[in-house]
Design a protein around this nucleic acid. Structure first.
Lengths: 405, 405
DNA sequence: GTAATATGTTTGTCGTACCAACAAATCATC
DNA sequence: GATGATTTGTTGGTACGACAAACATATTAC
């Protein structure tokens, strides 16, 4: 019993995960069905009935409501079979989110529709020391330019993929050293510039998100993702079907896993971090490729027979294997996906890296894990950033306010 | 659209996390309220109304149903204040689970009531090479003996905390090297011996569970737990309020984190594992304590001024710090709890170990993490094991069949 | 004692999903 | 082409859960 006037601890309050009132029940079912459509693409009403095990009539009513809300379009089926044809429910392509991804040399902006389709994209080069407010201004202008080409599309918000640590909740960039940003309220700035509700998160986690919803991690409930880029190594995890964000959104820093005693000192202040030991720049240099030809890294490493290259690749693989071993021991994932230059490293290792990488994990966890390369290419960050926006829409379709482009 | 006859992938099927039908809605609310009572202890109906933000009448109806099902008892309040007195809803103490914890030298058995109260416990010594079936037989006999003293109690199942890797789902012990067990279907064996629905899990994860539900991790949504024992170092995590089990239940093996290049070789096959570098036996030896006096380890380490002891403690703390750094970087927890001999090590370190341990994590994750000692002592495993059973009861109170002791 | 307050209880209403019966649109067969 | 089988959308009725409002009740404060 708490005294009547004592504030009741927040953590005690039951989260509204599941509907308690009948009205939340409906919201839940709207959410379920729209989420299925978003992730799986077009599904017939009959499919939805099977997948949700809701009643035919309920699915019909919900599909009608979603169509009325403008989130889906019902169209006659293209392929027929026995029985009355079931209308196919398509994600509405005019339901869009703005996705922004600032990088060291350019800002990438995209318009992503429900279903994860990138409708438009563009990149604007920026100087090496561009301020956050400058980048926000450029991105906002670019977003408006792209949206001007897409009349009648409803923008539900914006998502920003930041190469650095971002506080969940308010989208404050705590630190993005490669951008030279510290404590920049980037989400709030973009929201002020555009009026779109804006969310921001770490780029690696968003890349993971794209891969988890639409790519190699689709349908995988326990999933570890590691991505290597010019600015270091990041990652993200899914546990029990839920994205691991951590208390404030900083989870997934697998690049700072300890992998070598008396290793190099890392800018984070520690020693022996994976990303201080294994870098994209060194691998590129090894095969004499400029940064722009990053796509060639995998084949080049694989093709090289120089002993120095082979030894360096083997050493890097061993270091990455330590980080993977730790992650597999800690998470027991069923799939580990490598992206970016780590995927290239995997390709460049002559041996079967997918077997080597988890080889030192404990037996039980290792025997059922699959190590794969990422399926997504360039659009992963835009799609992941848009997911930040769609998560809100999918979670409560009927209650979501919209702004029209 | 999937062809009508094609099997629809399991992972597509929407999980029944939230009620879709009105009847699941009621189950959800029953579950919510019973879970609150279980975790927080007795709460008045008025408190429940505030905590769940359900309607007064609804809470009354649900409390009445739970009372009718025998899961709670409503009693008049002991302390009064203005207004009509609100009945206090207590967890029913005759709703119990059997908890079993086999260790190298003894089997511990307990009877745990709803609310996490250990009503009875006992330990039976076993030989060094006791087989799984032998241990199960002893535990089953002991459970029946304990239950005979508790007439009228309803047993809802049994939970087994195994010092080793246990497959979630069927409770198969994959490997418990210190017990000498490999591929033993311990849960199934105990279920066959007693008739109680039986679940098994890794002991460290269950210790974490107890600490998470009732101890230092109560109400913490992002939580890392590390426990050191005679047989090594284990752990468990909570992410976003959910226990991290991994794909098959093997998550949490933080004892096999890489902490030293060219370190000792571990029985797991890898090198440089934390639990191969930092052991309870060595610390005990350092201060000349027999294993039985493990409770004295912390004070003894703290009291010792011998340089060798101080150096060894500092070295061990540094190694543990590496594992904690990795975990904090990966999870961004708000609390890290150390238990067992690691808590003693923390106590024995003269310096402020709670500051040293996460010191090398990345700034954003480190600044908001709290490192604490475990609050629970001996009963943690029994309580954690019982949680395996109560999880089912709490999840669906009305639908749960019971067997009477 | 009386008022104020907080909370349990009762009754009626509303919303949601289900079920069953019917209608519609296709395929398979002749 | 007609007919039957099959599958699925549609409609109307029902059940049930939660809510709101009015009322009842038990305490504190004065």
């Amino acid at each position: 019993m708490c005294p009547a006037d004592s504030p009741i601890a927040d953590h005690l309050a039951v989260r509204p995960t599941s509907g308690s009132t009948t009205d939340q029940l409906r919201r839940n079912n709207l959410s379920k069905i729209l989420t299925l459509i978003h992730r799986e693409g077009a599904l017939s009403r009959a499919d939805l009935t099977r997948l949700t095990s809701l009643n035919r009539s309920t699915v019909g009513a919900i599909a009608a409501e979603l169509a009325a809300l403008g989130f889906v379009d019902e169209r006659p089926p293209l392929d027929f079979r026995a029985g009355r044809p079931s209308p196919v429910v398509h994600p509405n392509e005019r339901t869009v989110a703005v996705a922004v991804n600032p990088e060291v040399d350019a800002v990438h902006v995209g318009i992503v529709a429900l279903g994860g389709v990138v409708l438009a994209r563009s990149s604007v080069g920026i100087g090496p020391e561009a301020s956050a407010s400058e980048v926000v201004r450029i991105a906002a202008a670019e977003a408006h330019a792209l949206l001007a080409e897409l009349p009648g599309h409803r923008v539900f918000g914006a998502g920003i993929a930041v190469p650095g640590q971002v506080r969940i909740g308010d989208g404050q960039v705590r630190e993005a050293s490669h951008m030279g940003w510290f404590e920049e309220p980037v989400a709030a700035m973009f929201e002020a510039a555009t009026g779109f509700p804006t969310f921001a998160a770490n780029a690696a986690i968003l890349a993971m998100r794209a891969e988890s919803v639409f790519g190699a991690g689709k349908g995988v409930d326990n999933f570890v993702y590691v991505i290597g880029g010019a600015s270091g190594i990041g990652g993200g995890m899914v546990s029990g079907g839920k994205i691991v964000t951590g208390a404030a959104g900083y989870a997934g820093e697998i690049g700072h896993t300890f992998v070598r005693s008396s290793g190099a000192s890392c800018f984070c202040g520690a020693h022996g971090c994976l990303e201080a030991e294994v870098t994209q720049a060194r691998l590129l240099q090894l095969v004499n490729l400029p940064p722009s030809q990053i796509a060639e890294l995998g084949p080049a490493l694989a093709a090289s027979t120089e002993p120095a290259v082979r030894a360096a690749v083997a050493e890097d693989v061993a270091l990455v294997a330590i980080a993977i071993r730790n992650a597999v021991n800690l998470f027991n994932p069923s799939v580990v996906v490598l992206a970016g230059f780590l995927a290239a490293l995997m390709e460049g290792s002559g041996d079967d890296a997918s077997a080597i990488l988890p080889a030192e994990a404990v037996l039980a966890a290792r025997e059922s894990v699959r190590v794969e390369r990422a399926r997504f290419g360039a659009d992963q960050l835009l799609i992941g950033a848009a997911e930040l926006v769609f998560a809100g829409v999918l979670g409560d379709p009927s209650g979501y306010a919209s702004s029209r482009a």
